[in-house]
Nucleic acid binder design. Structure first.
Lengths: 202, 202
DNA sequence: ACTGGAAGTGGACAGTGACAACATAAGTGC
DNA sequence: GCACTTATGTTGTCACTGTCCACTTCCAGT
């Protein structure tokens, strides 16, 4: 048989797992179904991943990449004259991108934060990489532009992230999950207003 | 046998399920283990709950009650002269209570927001009940005291909830889950500052 | 005292993650 | 060219889960 060895099963498995995640969330990523879809027997995955959790972690990492892409795309579109308004605009856009991604790719988004037990292999937490890094750079811009007091810079990343993350969660599983889009947009605007005002004012 | 009929198995099952939730999160609530702990055979639960999801929903409701208690306890402790400072203090305390509960009872907290498929039986969403109601009343106080513009009242509930919910999530499963308590306290303070400033200022 | 239905039991079944033993393909040194 | 080693897939199995079904036990109302 020419197809005994798949070639690059590992990535194929991750892709299939990501599809499942997209469609059915973290619990939908079932090892045997992933194998089925890849046209390979169950247990084949164990040659590439220690266990289900490790495959899930790979999907999570993929999801983080997608999230970062979405953020960068929107953020980089904000440009033009005044560094102050640019920085403010970017802060808003990065928040909007986060929420938009979460609501349009709920499955991937959940998986990204469902990686449970182990911290990753080598890198414990490179703070300047990934979505958090994107946000951090924008906050730095805000400080440099004189729009945010420098002493607020420290926890600001967590504050911003918490706000949009919570917003997304509440609209995915929380009590406002059935709110009409119009109301959702209103809340989001107020959220972005509040954070911007809270971080920059006075 | 005197113990063939348990008496009030339903609540006993919910309690056992809650214990499991406390210890191991939503996925730790395993029907068979719940039955085992209650000293009853598997399947006994099916006389009281349609399926696992329904038992989980009951635990979620219990968790919501605990959360509301914790919030009320801290909020009601804020009292004294000026209605303005009282209202502001309560807003901070309700947020602090939310985060504290989430971090000290992560299992229950997760279950409270893991109830997936069905909206509840009778009440679709009584907005004035539960934790959301507690928060809502505080926001009303803020408006009445003249500390928050009335036109901001509408989405304010979602904004506050999102902020603390996201904060809790990030510290439970997110990238800052291993942050030292000191750093966490700093971020929380900044979060509360930001929301307060953002909602009240001009 | 009898009986009908509610509450609990025991036994199945399909589906899951994981492990161990086996089979096959691809290299690798000679 | 050719044996041998190693990475990669496969089959078979196990314990565990949620759920369905048929059966048993007990209480309540006549």
């Amino acid at each position: 048989m020419s197809t005994y060895h798949h070639g690059n099963l590992r990535t194929a498995l991750v892709v299939a797992a990501a599809d499942l995640a997209r469609a059915h969330g973290p619990d939908g990523v079932v090892l045997r179904e992933v194998a089925r879809r890849t046209g390979v027997s169950h247990n084949a995955a164990y040659r590439h991943f220690a266990d289900r959790e490790e495959l899930l972690a790979e999907v999570a990492s993929l999801a983080m990449d997608r999230l970062e892409e979405a953020m960068l795309q929107r953020v980089d579109a904000v440009t033009g004259g005044d560094p102050r308004t640019v920085a403010r605009g970017r802060l808003r856009e990065v928040g909007r991108a986060y929420v938009t991604f979460a609501l349009s790719e709920p499955g991937l988004f959940e998986v990204a934060f469902a990686a449970h037990k182990p911290q990753n292999e080598t890198a414990p937490m490179p703070p300047e990489a990934g979505p958090y890094g994107v946000l951090g750079r924008i906050l730095d811009e805000l400080v440099e532009a004189g729009e945010m007091p420098a002493e607020r810079r420290d926890g600001a990343g967590v504050v911003c992230w918490a706000a949009v993350h919570g917003f997304a969660m509440l609209h995915l599983h929380g009590p406002v999950r059935e709110a009409p889009p119009q109301e959702r947009e209103h809340s989001l605007r107020l959220l972005l207003d509040t954070v911007e005002r809270g971080l920059t004012r006075r």
